[in-house]
Computed example of a mutant assay.
Amino acid sequence: MKNFKITLVLFAIVNLAFSQAPAIISEVSGNGSPVLFLPGFTNPGSIWHDTAANLQGNHENHMISYAGFDGNAPIAMPWYETIKKELITYIEKRKLTNIIIIGHSMGGNLAVDIAAALPNKIKSLILVDSIPCVRELMMPGVPESQIQYESPYNKQMLAMDDDQFKQTAMMMAQNMTNTKDKVDTLLNWILKADRKTYVYGYTDLLKLDLRKVLDKITAKTLILGAAFPTIEMAKANYEKQYADLPNKTIEMIPDSKHFIMFDQPDLFYKKVNTFLINE
């Protein structure tokens, strides 16, 4: 009986510690209008340092990192939904208004979700190579109900040894940028991720279909799309998926893959600043 009680206490302590791990970690700098920087999957908030340094005007920069990535403690599933809720709480607790959100990939998904939930607080969105329903591109016609954590693919990913996972991660990294000296950066971010967060977190993203909330967004929006596999195909996908989003501008960035800010940094900064100056 005594051992049983000790086990229960230890179990409670472990669970308490796990539940207290934050879903988001913020790095705040500067003074001025608030800018919420949301990175993509596996990426740290520091990916936005160069972008912040090249923004014109005065800004209070909130660079967000996520649980399970960049050495941050993991959280329980559902991962994406918990991050979204914590971001909304973050905005409300700090009483942020007239917010600019710059989001890449999954960060763009979060930006859309937040702008739909808090339309009176979000002034403008910059979505960088972010699609509202990635499942429709990768698995056309597959319903959300068929996307499960305990899938054969997920079990295979979790069972990979370090060398196998590194090979898979390297192929992914090479397909996401044209800038060769950034491939190792992307690879290291993937390898640093908590494996379960990587596998199950991506499952959360595959379940998303944010097309149904686009009409709730009032923020002026700039969508920057990568020219991959071709600029024409990519643009057609953006126009189709963002059809219900009002007050938007879609601009395609030539000679770029998923990480536009790595492949075309000068053009990226120019597009961002022009949009913000003219909003």
Score class of each variant (00 low, 15 high):
120 N>D: 14
17 A>L: 13
15 N>R: 05
11 F>Y: 06
142 V>M: 07
260 I>C: 08
180 K>M: 08
230 T>V: 04
16 L>W: 14
260 I>T: 03
13 I>F: 13
18 F>A: 08
104 H>C: 02
136 E>Q: 13
3 N>Y: 15
157 M>D: 10
207 K>I: 10
258 H>D: 07
26 S>H: 13
10 L>A: 09
74 P>F: 12
232 E>M: 11
17 A>S: 10
48 W>T: 00
234 A>P: 08
125 L>W: 02
155 K>W: 05
277 I>E: 15
73 A>G: 05
265 P>F: 02
109 N>H: 08
219 A>C: 08
26 S>C: 11
187 L>C: 11
65 S>Y: 11
9 V>F: 15
234 A>H: 02
20 Q>C: 14
151 S>K: 11
196 K>G: 03
28 V>L: 08
23 A>S: 12
131 I>M: 01
30 G>Y: 05
237 N>V: 14
41 F>A: 05
185 T>H: 10
19 S>P: 06
84 K>D: 13
67 A>M: 14
119 P>F: 08
39 P>V: 03
246 P>W: 10
264 Q>I: 00
190 I>P: 00
269 Y>S: 07
198 Y>G: 05
25 I>V: 14
153 Y>I: 13
42 T>Y: 02
174 Q>W: 06
48 W>R: 00
35 V>D: 02
103 G>K: 01
77 M>T: 14
247 N>G: 06
188 N>Y: 10
190 I>D: 06
84 K>M: 11
270 K>N: 13
216 K>G: 04
229 P>R: 02
62 H>K: 02
263 D>K: 01
129 D>R: 03
257 K>S: 04
246 P>G: 07
22 P>L: 00
31 N>P: 02
100 I>C: 01
33 S>H: 11
63 M>D: 02
141 G>F: 12
176 M>Q: 12
114 I>K: 01
144 E>P: 03
138 M>N: 07
55 L>M: 13
180 K>H: 07
220 K>N: 05
161 D>K: 04
225 G>H: 04
82 T>C: 06
261 M>I: 00
208 L>D: 03
